Simulated scan of single mutants.
Amino acid sequence: MKKTLTALLALTASPALAEGTVNVLTWEGYADASFITQFEEESGCKVTATYVGSNDDFAPKLLGGGGVYDLIAPSIDTTALMIDLGLVEPLDTAAITGWGDIYQKFRDLPGLQRDGVHYGMPYSWGAIAFMYRNDVFTTPPTSIADLWNPDLAGKVSLWDDKSAIYVAARLNGDSDIYNLTDEQIEAAKAKLIEQKPLVRKYWATAGELVDLYKAGEVVISNTWAGYQSSLLAAEGIEVTEFIPTEGAEGWLDAWMVVKDTPNRECAYKFLNMQLSALGQCGVANVNGYSAANPVAAKACMSPEQFTALHQDDPDYLDSLMIWTALGERFEAYTNAWNAVKAQ
């Protein structure tokens, strides 16, 4: 398969390209027109994107989609589940230009492979930081506890995701957030229920959180570091991101090929683009996220951006609580979060 696919890609690399399609299930910004338009013109592949607001969206959409999607981009705590459910196929890494340039520590993550066979192509990474409006706070927040401040009633937001359990657990002093006991999960749930009267809304998408900040309805929240803050800055809203004293989660997103995709040719052209300077700086410039391919990043980023995104320091990810698959505990976390929202 590897030789055949590589040869096919080489034959179709000429300007006279047959039109094709690639359907991606991904996050906001990962198929932005600022770089996707160029890809479509150069490849002859039309990109259709469907966006998710949580990693918990991938499995239901694939299981109920009947082959609608060709590529998905789940985070590292969800990639193993996609493999276990048989929803994705092994990557032809020989057909991915720049595969060897990806940070090795990312390529070697166990959640992206089975028995040495790779299923996920690392794409972007970063932190789940916290954020506040500068014009509201005379004393800058430094702790998760600031999201439980009664003086901010009706002005707080959290991501509508099971990771809210991680946030409350850290506030409770339970730092092993991916291995919580039933009692610790229950304590985190109780903490979130206690906070609920302060919450204006649980945000589901980047745009929703940005709108809440712009309207002055929310002044403090967690955030996809680099993304919503840059969108707000473009609107003239000054916000500051911070890593709380209780620590922050880290994430890595990877592209995966949906099993038996009928659009394999365009899917691999898309993967190659996303790992090139066009795709790596595309996500960095649109979302403010760090890139998985430092060689491509160095070719398209200024030295200042390269350093600011920790491209010269991938060990920065080790300072974060990198998301981990919950395995059999997934349901316990999810049920607890759903119980909070049902209150």
Rank of each mutant, 00 (worst) to 15 (best):
A164C: 02
Y30M: 09
A248H: 13
I193P: 02
A225S: 14
I322H: 04
E304R: 14
L147E: 06
L63C: 03
E249W: 06
P262N: 13
G247C: 08
L71F: 08
I36W: 08
V199P: 02
A332H: 10
Q38W: 02
T334H: 14
W224Y: 12
L25M: 11
P303E: 07
D101N: 15
T261E: 11
W224F: 06
T138A: 15
T139R: 13
D312W: 07
A308V: 10
E194L: 04
G67W: 03
D146Q: 13
G44C: 04
W251H: 15
D161C: 01
E304N: 09
E41N: 10
E235V: 03
W255V: 03
M131Q: 15
A188M: 09
L147S: 01
A284R: 07
R133K: 12
A342K: 13
P140R: 12
F242M: 03
W159F: 07
A284E: 08
P244Y: 04
Y119D: 07
V340N: 05
D253H: 14
A94R: 14
T334P: 00
L271N: 07
N338W: 06
N335L: 01
A169Q: 12
K214S: 11
C300Y: 01
T78K: 07
Y119L: 00
V22A: 08
P150A: 08
F330A: 14
E235I: 03
V258F: 04
S14D: 11
G53C: 01
K155M: 01
L147I: 01
F35C: 06
T78L: 00
Y132F: 14
N285T: 08
D151R: 10
L212C: 09
E208D: 14
T48L: 03
D161E: 01
L152M: 08
M82D: 12
W255R: 07
L17R: 12
D135S: 14
K105E: 13
T37M: 08
D101E: 11
L62T: 07
L11H: 12
A291G: 13
Q184C: 11
Y123A: 12
L17Q: 15
L275G: 14
A234T: 02
S75I: 05
G86K: 06
T223F: 00
T205K: 02
R200F: 10
Y103E: 15
A94I: 06
S54Y: 00
V167G: 01
D135L: 09
P74N: 08
P110T: 10
G154R: 02
S302I: 07
P197N: 07
E235S: 15
L275K: 05
L85C: 08
P294N: 01
T50D: 08
A187F: 00
I220R: 01
